[in-house]
């Protein structure tokens, strides 16, 4: 018996929003970690090169 003008339900939208946020943020973080790991295993690169400043 909701009063007039109130949006009833909508839980599917709420769940979709939170799920989407979780997926997007973790997917981006995941690709970053993966790419970082890939550069680390490259033997031609100095692992501490990230701290240097060549310019």
């Amino acid at each position: 018996m909701a009063p007039q003008g109130v949006i009833v339900g909508g839980w599917s939208y709420v769940i979709a929003t939170y799920a989407l946020s979780a997926v997007v943020l973790s997917a981006y973080a995941g690709t970053l970690l993966l790419r970082l790991r890939r550069t680390r295993h490259d033997p031609s690169r100095d692992p501490s090169a990230g701290e240097g400043d060549a310019t």
Binding site: L32, R35, L36, T39, R40, D42, S44, R45, D46, A49, G50, E51, G52, A54
Partner: peptide
């Protein structure tokens, strides 16, 4: 990651 890439 970008620093490593630039160094690479």
């Amino acid at each position: 990651l970008e620093m490593r890439r630039l160094a690479g």
